[in-house]
Design a binder for these strands. Structure first.
Ligand SMILES: NC(=O)c1ccc[n+]([C@@H]2O[C@H](COP(=O)([O-])OP(=O)(O)OC[C@H]3O[C@@H](n4cnc5c(N)ncnc54)[C@H](O)[C@@H]3O)[C@@H](O)[C@H]2O)c1
Ligand SMILES: NC(=O)c1ccc[n+]([C@@H]2O[C@H](COP(=O)([O-])OP(=O)(O)OC[C@H]3O[C@@H](n4cnc5c(N)ncnc54)[C@H](O)[C@@H]3O)[C@@H](O)[C@H]2O)c1
Lengths: 217, 217
DNA sequence: TTATGATTGTGAAAAATAGAACAAACATTG
DNA sequence: CAATGTTTGTTCTATTTTTCACAATCATAA
């Protein structure tokens, strides 16, 4: 894993921390909906399946949010984390490859609750172009650069076959995309300033297989 | 991230290493198909977007596979890694939630090339039960325990809504599943001996959003 | 055959991450 | 109000992961 780090004031925080903060926020929202008003790092950590120190440590990169002897106000902390992660204003993204996985993601309703919204989807297959998925019309991949640039999109999700992934990523980058979530089972080599997160389901399952086989002996 | 470790002989190797080995194997197969017979850690690392030391170090946990001054025989290394990861014999898995994401995974053809095969899919929705997806008939979630146990499946993939994930995971565990890939945006609390890998796409994109916003300033 | 250059494998150093420990702050109870 | 118990925030310590540095090995070409 290439550990990219992000500046926050004077400190540097790893994206791993950011991902955890995001999952904290996710569960805090659930608590909020359940009417919980105050929570301690201990009980929240138990909910999250992590240690309470890790929770407090992660928060500490961004300042004190709790009250000693009491815990955290769920509402306040939710608001602070939302602001911190910039999850308040909607972030749009572009998706390439409106196939099986791509369609699922287009229709992935949870993204809305995260203020993440798909703004454009592209495909090179004539049978896919023009198709309406969940209200979004799939556009011609040829128009990707123009549209992405016009809309000012910064995040790209790659759901095209492996052999097309590199080229698609490059085109996205040239259109102003600076962060990519890649589902294709291949590594993308691209400008340093573009951040690439890979999710390779085959690799995930293969690793689990290894674990299973080890457990068997 | 809970860092689970696996025994190999006397050494302990983290699952992160295993995942990387899996991605090495993935790219080695591509090289093999392209007729490349010998490769150095340097050129392969460049292909993988990592450092050559990391590649060699990862391999070193399992023994020497290369020839000094020359490099690695692609064919041999592929075979060794395949054996090491146990990727030679097919590993079956069970999937819960044959919805949008679940269907995409059922139809995910690349898994076959990894010798990973879906053996059973379950859903609780009457409209989904009995449906044939890519030749596989979706079974009633009620029968999950029995079927999973009978088939001796060890890996479970969770594609059900968040609120059902915990219960589904527990039922999988009770049926003998010891490794779970969870796509639901919630943490699963379960017996220590069951390994849970989480893939939360919302969290991934939210982290990218943070990166994007940071880059803007 | 002998130098030269390339590349591996690994112990040791460095960096990053996680964890423990504890003082400071607050609430509560008597 | 004082004593006690709780919980945070943070420093310090331990562990894990990554990177460096280099001896050992091999091919090649003089
Ligand atoms: N199906 C899954 O569950 C799954 C899971 C994980 C990863 N993936 C990966 O995601 C990618 C897509 O998988 P899928 O199952 O949806 O395949 P798919 O064939 O259903 O979809 C791929 C789509 O990409 C389009 N495409 C091809 N080249 C393109 C280009 N240059 N520009 C724009 N669009 C292009 C195709 O027309 C097609 O619609 C693959 O790399 C696959 O390995 C799939
Ligand atoms: N759609 C995506 O691209 C996407 C991406 C990442 C994660 N996810 C997550 O994956 C999960 C599924 O997402 P989806 O978009 O496919 O939703 P979906 O509603 O299309 O599918 C969920 C399926 O689970 C079934 N189900 C519900 N309870 C069940 C139970 N107890 N046992 C068995 N089956 C049950 C439902 O009948 C449905 O068919 C959700 O947790 C979602 O957050 C989805």
């Amino acid at each position: 894993m290439t550990s990219r780090r992000v500046l926050t004031g004077s400190k540097q925080v790893s994206l791993e921390v950011i991902k955890r903060l995001s999952s904290y926020l996710r569960d805090l929202k659930t608590l909020e909906n359940n009417g919980v008003t105050v929570v301690s790092s201990g009980s929240l950590a138990e909910l999250l399946g992590i240690s309470s120190v890790q929770f407090r440590k992660d928060l500490s990169y961004f300042g004190p949010f709790g009250k000693k002897g009491v815990g955290y106000n769920v509402c306040t902390l939710t608001a602070k984390l939302t602001e911190l992660l910039g999850a308040g204003d909607c972030m749009g993204f572009a998706l390439a490859g409106a196939g099986k996985l791509g369609s699922a993601i287009i229709q992935y309703s949870s993204l809305q609750r995260f203020n993440i919204k798909i703004m454009a989807a592209f495909d090179s297959d004539r049978r896919k172009i023009g198709k309406k998925i969940d209200g979004l019309v799939v556009a011609d991949a040829k128009d990707m650069e123009t549209t992405v640039r016009t809309m000012g999109l910064k995040i790209g999700v790659i759901c095209v076959p492996a052999k097309a992934a590199q080229q698609v990523a490059e085109r996205m980058a040239s259109a102003g995309i600076i962060a990519v979530l890649n589902f294709a089972p291949t590594e993308i080599k691209i400008l340093k300033k573009v951040h690439v997160s890979n999710v390779d389901i085959c690799v995930e399952i293969e690793a689990l297989s290894y674990f299973v086989r080890q457990s068997a002996t």
